[in-house]
Structures are given as C-alpha cells and as structure tokens.
Simulated assay, not measured.
Amino acid sequence: MNVHILADSASDLPIEYFQENSITFLPLSVELNGKQLEDQRAIKPKQIYEEMRQGTVVKTSQITPSLFKDVFTELAKKGTPSLYVAFSSELSGTYQTAMMMRNEVLEEYPDFRLTIIDSKCASLGCSLAVKYAVELAKSGKQLEEIENAVKNYCQKVEHIFTVDNLEYLARGGRISKASAFVGGLLNIKPLLHVEDGKLIPLEKIRGRKKVFKRIIEIMKERGVNLQNQTIAISHGDDEESANEIKALIQEEFQPKDIYINYVGAVIGAHSGPGTLAIFFLNDEL
C-alpha cells in the first residue's frame, strides 16, 4: 500500500483485522476497579458488560498524547504517507489530541504527510469507513484521493441504534434520570441516531419487536441501494437480537454482506448491555 492506515479501538473492528491488514491499532482505555485497561488488548467487551450487569461503574479515557506522539514519530521516520480515521470528535477528545500531536511531530518532521479525518462516526459506522480506506489504499490510491473519498463516505454513514436500559444513557447525561426510570417501567426503548457526530434521540418505542420493525422502516426511508451495500450490526453482548435483526434485514433488502461484532468496551461503557446498532449508507458514493 502507498498509504498507511491508522484507526482507533472505537471503530470496534476485531484486533485481528488490524493485524491482517497491517493497520496501526490505537487503543482507547477503560477504567475498571481502579485499573486503566487498553481496549481490546487488556480487556474484551464481554468482560465490561458482565461487570456492568453487576453494577460496576466503568469509566473511559481517550488515547494518550504520548501514544499518539510515539506512533506518529515512528511513521514520520519511515516517511510513509499515512491516514488516520478517528472516532467522532463530538464523542471523544481523541481527534483533538491526535491533531495536537500531529502538529508537534510535524515541527520535527515537516515533510511527513499525515492526514487525520474526524469521521463523525462511532463503532461499526467508523469501521465501515476504515474498511473503505483500506480498500482504497490496497488499490493503489494516493493520500489525497483516499482522504477525499473517505470524508465523503463518512458523511453518508447512518447510525441507528437502541439501548436495552436507559439508565446507562442517563449516567452519561444523554437523558434525565427521571426519564430513565419511567422508561424502564414502561418498557420504552429509545431509538437514536448520529447527526454530525453527535448522539441525537429519534423516537421512543414500546417493546423490542416494534423497535425492530421501526429500524427496518428507517432503513427503507434513509438507505439507498441497500442490496449492494455491506451493512454492519453491533451489539452489547446480545447476539440473539443482532441475529434477529440481521435476518429481518436479509429478508427485506438482500444486501451484499452483513457483518456483526460487539459494541466495544469503550462505547459499551456508555451505552450498556443490550445495545443494538445498525450502520448503512444513505446515498451513493
């Protein structure tokens, strides 16, 4: 590849994907029982969900400036043009820290070509953008071509998701604690999406089956050419629901591919067990 790709753990791609495609892996961290643990390396998502079900409060932290500087410096020494597809700046300070460290490294290596894209995406929404960047890099595209194409791609990624327990969103300040309590009593499931990198509530729906039906309706409303897309589904330790919505999507749209993975530890610490998210494109590339 003419361009080296970097991505962070908030893309929720399996670490094996990074290894198989020679991508630099940048881990965010979770704080669990007083210990800082690197996402995917020192802790797996299932462990986080088990802890959360037992009432453990999990905190998260962005990638450290020192890690960014070390990684960027190594790449600068090699002189390989590089592109980092970063977790949404509206959900983490990771992008801003990366830009700050990039500028520091460029003072010492002014000829180093490093592009950092604020994907405005999260979880497997970000993974779709990373996979697209890898595909372009493998096809021999140059840095500027990949940058423009990936930015365009990111603007078209839809994130539609629901959570099983409103309390976790309440802890993160996304909804009020009163709303979480009432919602839990009434079996209300919120539907949310991502707009310009921010989490935005869409609707409140009672019952899981109605939520699934509404997700399919939204995909019909927003999706374009779904039969030729790769659609991603991420879940908070709820493979049963992920496979259930996969079957509905398959039946309705017959997409080119559907892949499923966990909502990773960092994002899952805020969304909680039972989260279910669907990612697809809303326009032609």
Rank of each mutant, 00 (worst) to 15 (best):
E74S: 10
Y109V: 03
G93F: 02
E203G: 09
C126V: 13
L6G: 05
A86I: 07
L143K: 03
L191E: 10
G125D: 10
I63D: 07
V85C: 09
K209F: 04
M100K: 15
G223D: 01
E31V: 14
S179P: 11
L6R: 12
E203H: 00
G223Q: 07
T73Y: 04
V58G: 13
R214P: 06
K210E: 08
Q229F: 14
D237W: 05
Q254K: 15
Q54K: 15
E167F: 02
G184Y: 07
T64Y: 07
F161A: 08
P65Q: 09
H270K: 03
E38Y: 15
Y153K: 14
L124A: 03
A265C: 04
E104V: 13
L191H: 12
K77L: 03
L83E: 06
G125V: 01
N148C: 06
S92H: 06
G274C: 00
G268D: 02
D118T: 05
G264W: 06
N2I: 08
H235M: 12
V85A: 06
K156W: 02
E244F: 09
I23E: 10
G79N: 03
G93E: 03
L124C: 00
K213V: 08
L248K: 00
G184E: 08
K77P: 04
D39C: 00
N148Q: 15
K138G: 11
N148Y: 01
Y259L: 02
L13C: 13
E284F: 15
H159A: 05
Y168P: 00
V266E: 01
A42T: 08
E240Q: 04
A269C: 06
K198G: 09
S139M: 02
E16M: 08
I215F: 15
G173W: 01
E107M: 14
K138S: 13
N243V: 05
P201N: 08
H235P: 03
V266K: 12
L13H: 07
S61R: 12
A42L: 05
L128W: 12
K210I: 06
H4S: 12
P273T: 08
I200S: 02
E144Y: 12
Y109W: 04
L276F: 00
I258T: 01
A76E: 04
G79C: 07
S123E: 07
K204L: 01
V211Q: 02
S9Y: 09
Q19D: 14
H193I: 09
R102A: 08
R102V: 09
L285M: 10
I15H: 04
Y168T: 02
K210S: 14
K59D: 10
E244D: 14
Q96D: 15
N165E: 14
Y132P: 06
E51P: 03
H235Q: 13
I5W: 01
K177M: 11
V105C: 05
V182T: 00
F87I: 15
S179T: 09
E217K: 15
F253V: 11
